[in-house]
Design a protein around this nucleic acid. Structure first.
Length: 432
DNA sequence: TCTGGGGTCCTAGGACCC
DNA sequence: TCTGGGGTCCTAGGACCC
């Protein structure tokens, strides 16, 4: 008998109920309890623990609807604490990376790695990763393994949906016979696949393609002609041919940068909108500078609530090409402020955003003397950032953003946990 | 009263070039 | 009446991801 092949495979490691798990790391009282994590402004549920899923809490339900029943069901809510989640994510990813030669950090709670070995060896490697991450960070992870990214996602679905697999926490697609694999694919709705959502799902249903097995049976070229190259790749990946490479190097530069927020209470006046835009623009300029990039095109928008029935929807938007590519906060704020003149005073706006596109690495082009933006060369951005770092957000601001008291529309986060891993004064106290 | 935020990729179509 | 062909670049919008 020939030895079992030691094939290269892709493993997808994902954190179980990541935000809820983060909340538990520093608050063991939340163990075994239904935990939900809310969006900004404590708006709606964006993540929940297994216990909350079992209770049937719908994803996306507004907190004001869930709150009345939460107490009676023992549901604990937390405001989202992205600083904590980001910090724990970095630790989790670092530990996962110790176990593989190649790693792609795909999102805040998912990472692709490549492994090599027999089916048994790779499953053992998956188990070691789980134990290691749990021991080092307190975060539970699961591992789906297959020859392609799309099938690794499918294997992960197995861990999530099958009770025996979820106890092990690791699923290797290659551990199944061809007949068993077909059965698995036939049990998965197409819209559960990576890259297939509602719109595509409806169009596929019209062609009588309902399950992953149905899709895998299609001719790849025809799927490309009728839909797109994206769906063609999905078909090929379902058949075991890798089409989506592991991206080892994190991308150095982004294509666009967005700062958008809902308000805790509606903004109805031009002066208030000017203040919003000044503050958002300053935040965005700071991010852009930290990324080492400059922007040439700016877009600002505001919008009314899609749920409001008593007023006309209104979503004004402006776009501007900046005189020269810049990360200079005064220029970006000035470019955004034009939007404030487009709002209808009295109309209730619930959110706004500023978007920078056509980004490029900073310092690529020399500007002729006198042609640069007004603040250029005066180090305004770094100075503002330094003051904010030392005295906190809101301690200093540009023009309309420079206010002593926080504006009434500012984000609400009533159930915020401590930022235990990034702020000395928010360290967790342990009593023995 | 109260419903998130930040990204990427692909395609079609228009502008423009020779 | 009849008005080329082939190519690139750019942008807006759709669709998807977590």
């Amino acid at each position: 008998m020939s030895p079992a092949p030691r094939e290269a495979v892709i493993a997808l490691v994902d954190c179980a109920s990541f935000y809820a798990s983060c909340e538990r790391v520093f608050d063991p009282r939340l163990e075994d309890r239904p935990v939900v994590v809310l969006s900004n402004n404590d708006g709606c549920v964006v993540a929940m623990s297994q216990e909350a899923k079992v209770l049937g809490v719908p994803m996306g339900i507004p907190w004001f609807k869930l709150e009345p029943v939460a107490a009676t069901q023992g549901i604990v809510a937390r405001s989202s604490n992205y600083e904590l989640y980001g910090s724990l994510s970095a630790r989790v990813m670092e530990v996962i990376g110790r176990h593989a030669a190649w790693q792609e950090v795909y999102s805040i709670d998912e990472s692709f790695i490549s492994l090599r070995g027999t089916v048994e060896e790779v499953i053992q490697a998956g188990r070691r990763i789980r134990e290691d991450v749990a021991r080092c960070t307190g975060i539970p992870v699961r591992v789906g393994i297959a020859p392609t990214k799309t099938l690794a996602k499918v294997a992960l679905l197995g861990v999530k949906r099958s009770a025996p697999l979820s106890r092990v926490g690791v699923c290797h697609f290659g551990a199944y016979s061809p007949t068993q694999r077909d059965t698995i694919l036939a049990s998965i709705p197409v819209t559960d696949l990576w890259g297939v959502a509602g719109r595509l799902g409806r169009r596929l249903a019209n062609l009588n393609i309902h399950t992953a097995a149905d899709l895998a049976a299609q001719d790849p070229g025809q799927m490309r002609r009728r839909f797109s190259v994206v769906l063609e790749r999905t078909v090929r990946e379902l058949r075991g041919t890798p089409c989506i490479p592991l991206e080892e190097e994190p991308r150095q530069y982004k294509d666009q940068l967005i700062y958008s927020r809902s308000f805790s209470e509606p903004v109805t006046t031009t002066p208030a909108m000017r203040q919003v835009l000044s503050i958002y623009a300053q935040q965005l300029a700071s991010r852009l500078r930290n990324a080492g990039q400059e922007a040439r095109v700016l877009t600002a928008w505001a919008s009314t609530s899609p749920f409001a029935t008593d007023q006309e929807p209104h979503s004004p938007q402006i776009s501007a090409v900046l005189p020269v590519p810049t990360a200079e906060p005064v220029t970006i704020a000035r470019g955004s402020l034009g939007l404030a003149e487009l709002i209808r005073p009295g109309t209730r706006y619930v959110r706004a955003g500023v978007v920078l596109t056509d980004l490029r690495p900073a310092g690529q082009a020399e500007t002729l003397p006198g042609l640069g933006p007004p603040g250029e060369g005066r180090n305004l951005g770094p100075t503002l950032d330094a003051v904010v770092a030392r005295f906190g957000v809101g301690s200093v601001g540009l023009g309309y953003g420079g206010l002593g008291t926080p504006p009434s529309w500012q984000m609400r986060r009533a159930m915020l946990s401590p930022r235990a891993t990034t702020h000395w004064d928010e360290l967790v106290t342990v009593r023995l």
